[in-house]
Simulated scan of single mutants.
Amino acid sequence: MSEADGKGNADALARLLRFVLAAGEVRLVEGDALVAPDGRRQPLAPVVLAEAISLGLLRRGGARLSPLPEARVHLKRRLCDAQTPFAGQHRDMAAVTVLRDGVRERALANRLESPLANLARLKEKSGEAYLPEGAFAAGERLHADFTRGGLQPKMTMSWEPRIASRQKGEAGAGRDLTDTTLAARLRVARAIEAIGPELSGVALDVCCFMKGLEMVERERRWPARSAKLMLRAALLALARHYAPPAKTARHRHVWGAEGYRPDLSR
């Protein structure tokens, strides 16, 4: 797909979302048009509709389409991008895979503002990626939960041991937090616990505080290039936490007396 085709689809998707959000719910008629409750019509390209559904922006029930909460966020972000055309020269956008609720999804990331994305571009001598896709996706998910939980404005390096535990006098501190925020904080706490105290610090520094590896080494007084190894180990542990490997069936051993024959009918 050419750049012009991609931009055209993005514009068509924005028009579709704007129409559905304004109407609340629309009907799909003749497979290529939308009709709002007030009778307004809008043409529709099947490929744009398929993209909106695959991205989790619209819900389809038969011939009816309704917007999901992500639709308004997506449209708002699209409009902001359109209003700041000069910001594009400071971006290096690339398609990445992220984990959300255990499902891998495609998204766009600005590689110029993410130390983790810089690491994801490194290659082993064999040509394979230094940071496996699952590990990169785990780091992105940790960053998303960290941001969704509203932790960034308040957290510093001294906050690390307190993520998974509440301090004395903080019993009522969470009463004004939404369920979404509290759930995100709980996921961060569980992730940090899964990584372990030895590796969680570097994961927080890079994935959440967006610190470069050299800064991490300087602040923690680590040898050169050691942060890269520590971060990789942390993200591999985090990936196993988010997507545990399937358990293999354990073989049972049965001891029998002389002349014993196993029952093969089971």
Results as ranks from 00 to 15, higher is better:
Pro46Phe: 11
Cys207Arg: 02
Arg106Asp: 07
Ala173Cys: 01
Ala12Pro: 05
Arg190Pro: 03
Gln42Lys: 09
Thr156Pro: 00
Thr156Arg: 11
Leu99Tyr: 06
Arg220Gly: 08
Val35Tyr: 02
Ala95Tyr: 05
Arg100Val: 03
Ala246Pro: 06
Leu151Ser: 05
Lys7Leu: 13
Ser114Asn: 11
Ala50Phe: 03
Ala227Phe: 01
Val47Leu: 10
Ala237Cys: 08
Ser126Val: 02
Phe146Pro: 03
Ser226Met: 02
Pro245Tyr: 00
Asp101Met: 01
Val216Leu: 13
Glu51Trp: 07
Ala120Met: 04
Asn110Ala: 11
Leu199Gly: 06
Thr97Lys: 08
Gly212Arg: 06
Glu113Tyr: 09
Gln83Ala: 15
Met93Ser: 02
Ser226His: 02
Lys247Glu: 09
Arg18His: 11
Ala120Glu: 08
Gly56Arg: 02
Asn118Ser: 08
Ala12Tyr: 04
Gly39Glu: 08
Ala45Phe: 02
Pro67Cys: 04
Asp92Arg: 15
Leu177Lys: 15
Ala94Val: 09
Ala243Gly: 03
Ala183Ser: 14
Ala246Ser: 12
Gly196Cys: 08
Lys228Val: 09
Asp263Gln: 14
Ala243Asp: 14
Arg162Asp: 07
Met215Leu: 10
Val47Ala: 15
Asp205Arg: 14
Leu49Arg: 15
Gly39Met: 09
Ser114His: 13
Val48Arg: 06
Ala33His: 12
Glu128Ala: 13
Arg162Val: 04
Val216Gln: 15
Glu258Cys: 12
Leu99Cys: 07
Ser126Met: 04
Gln167Lys: 13
Ser66Phe: 00
Pro245His: 04
Asp92Thr: 08
Gly127Trp: 15
Ile163Val: 15
Gly169Val: 10
Leu186Gly: 11
Leu34Ala: 02
Arg72Cys: 01
Gly150Pro: 09
Phe86Gln: 10
Arg100Thr: 01
Phe86Cys: 10
Ser66Leu: 05
Ile192Leu: 15
Ala52Met: 14
Phe86Met: 10
Lys76Phe: 10
Ala71Trp: 01
Ile53Trp: 04
Leu68Asn: 04
Ala194Arg: 03
Gly6Arg: 14
Cys80Gln: 15
Leu213Phe: 15
Ala189Lys: 00
Ala189Ser: 14
Glu170Lys: 12
Ala183Cys: 09
Glu105Ile: 13
Ala243Met: 09
Ala50Asn: 05
Phe86Pro: 00
Phe209Asn: 03
Glu170Phe: 14
Ala10Tyr: 01
Ala249Pro: 04
Phe146Thr: 03
Lys228Pro: 01
His253Leu: 15
Pro197Asn: 04
Gly169Leu: 10
Leu108Phe: 07
Arg220Leu: 11
Ala135Gln: 13
